[in-house]
Design a protein around this nucleic acid. Sequence first.
DNA 1: GTGAAAGCGCTAACAG
DNA 2: CTGTTAGCGCTTTCAC
Lengths: 341, 341
Amino acid sequence: MKYTTIIDIAKELGMSKSTVSRALSGDAHNVKPETMKLICETAKRMGYQRNEMAVNLRHRTTRNIGIIIPEIVTSFFMNYIQQAQKELRKHGYRTIITVSNEDPEQEAENLQMLEQCRVEGILMSVCHKDKNALLYNKVVRHGIPIVFFDRRVEGMDASVVCIDDNLMAFFMVERLIRSGCRKIVHLTGPEHIGNCHDRYRGYREALEKFSIPYDQRYVIEGGLSAEEGSAAMEEFLSQGLEFDGLFGFTETSTLGAKSLLQKKHYRIPEDVSLCCISGTTLCKLVHPMVTAVEQPVNEMATLSCQLLLNQIADPNAARECVVLRGNIEERESTLAVKGVL
Amino acid sequence: MKYTTIIDIAKELGMSKSTVSRALSGDAHNVKPETMKLICETAKRMGYQRNEMAVNLRHRTTRNIGIIIPEIVTSFFMNYIQQAQKELRKHGYRTIITVSNEDPEQEAENLQMLEQCRVEGILMSVCHKDKNALLYNKVVRHGIPIVFFDRRVEGMDASVVCIDDNLMAFFMVERLIRSGCRKIVHLTGPEHIGNCHDRYRGYREALEKFSIPYDQRYVIEGGLSAEEGSAAMEEFLSQGLEFDGLFGFTETSTLGAKSLLQKKHYRIPEDVSLCCISGTTLCKLVHPMVTAVEQPVNEMATLSCQLLLNQIADPNAARECVVLRGNIEERESTLAVKGVL
DNA sequence: GTGAAAGCGCTAACAG
DNA sequence: CTGTTAGCGCTTTCAC
């Protein structure tokens, strides 16, 4: 397998590789139209494919952007990537996607790999709120701009795009309360994810607003996945406490909890008792049992790409911290029942 | 932003760049241990990051594998990527992921981009059963092995890993029939996706086995997404035909159809009336209303990676066509109701 | 409008 | 064990 090079083309046509290079990079100003046409045609005929490595090496720039996400099971990040890729491609950038699997070490490896591929900027959602913080700073100081999205990370010299977790959580819990819930379980997320602290605060603030006493037995770590959510719910149930509402951390863990409740033949007031913050299609499918805040994932992607590109264009551009607001999804109840657990 | 090069290190230590290169690539056999140590330390101190472009250019090989998938909304492909990436990384390969958005033109672009990045092989799930077939062949003939997965494509000189759509569909529909369904709607997929023909055949064969007359009004194109599935269901309902079961093409479109039925206050026999073939967590979450064949996505990923690596190692390795079998998921019914529509 | 030559950062013979 | 040299494929001055 031998790729055709500009030298092959030059030989074939008996001219210098410079001319071929010029023609192939569309420098109409410096090559006769007929030569141009001739070269392009033979290039096509010979199946020429420009070697990006060589170009990059020569140019000392790659048009590569790295994306680092913590997981791939949630559709949120998929949607993000989809949109970001679209946006970046428009500006002639390729994307290299890497997944850290919620593991800081793997994240560090990914970061290094991206540096070795000489990406010009990085879009990143961290897997731990501070474990790799020094590393991020090192990369940024080295001149590779990073834009953080979705997951909070503190004290970085970088732009951030995220949603107002605290406020959204407050809204959600407030809704539960207004619809009659008083004993609300809160499935939090893993301690190392910054956002869950903000949501927890929102939960407490909402309770406080309505003078509902806080009981820490109602707060339980529910992980990220459905399995974890389900297990956490089981753990909660084992305490034998009464409850009438649930506010979960991820959509998936919330659904996991719900499916456990169903298995145990709990009757759930379908339209209000569960809620979570998400950015996914999942909610929309899983019939109207979950009241959710929809994360504005497209906006997040577009914005973070823009911030990154700005910073690539002008390294001294001001860092920005954009806090987006989610859309609370009102969804009609299909089931008439609205009992208690 | 200037990256440290081996020359910088060589200068710093007053030795030749070859020695530095040797040390940094761990050639312990040809460099004195102390020099080795010295070099590695200064490299670290100076923040050296090997330039992959240069290495690739020199080596004339990239350790890059391209992945082309048609869409990113279904979790199936996400799971696939996750597993494939893990597998390939184990063997020292990077992955470049591209999404075609079900658009053959974009797929062609992706293919070209991957060639320009000199990937050593491609894992590919096509977006159209024949539109780019010539192109695929061209790439393969040029010496870049492709392994196709999940989506069928005919007449390629390449390995394929897929599931037995025909048989799985037959199983599913048979189950519906055995549980009492007689008027089964079939939401097929887009015509250009090869798999849906196999599933359609399975549907017909099952009907035939039980001597249930085929009525083409019960077969309707349901697209891929929830929205499409929902719209298709609406279209079906407008015909005013009775039905008591549904066999969908994708999990998402099936769920879309279900959510429409719910909105219209249909009562669905929760545990048997709907079914689809999928490879996702979605099914598991969406309480036990969908009987599904679980696509063995991990197996598919592992296998296709292996086939690809084999072919990279030995271009003349025989092409294989592996047909996997899905697992029919038995799921307990949580709702006691089991009425008719 | 075209060609000659230098060099991006690295590796791999070939000498010593 | 280490240094010298050539060259991967391409772009880009600088001449002509």
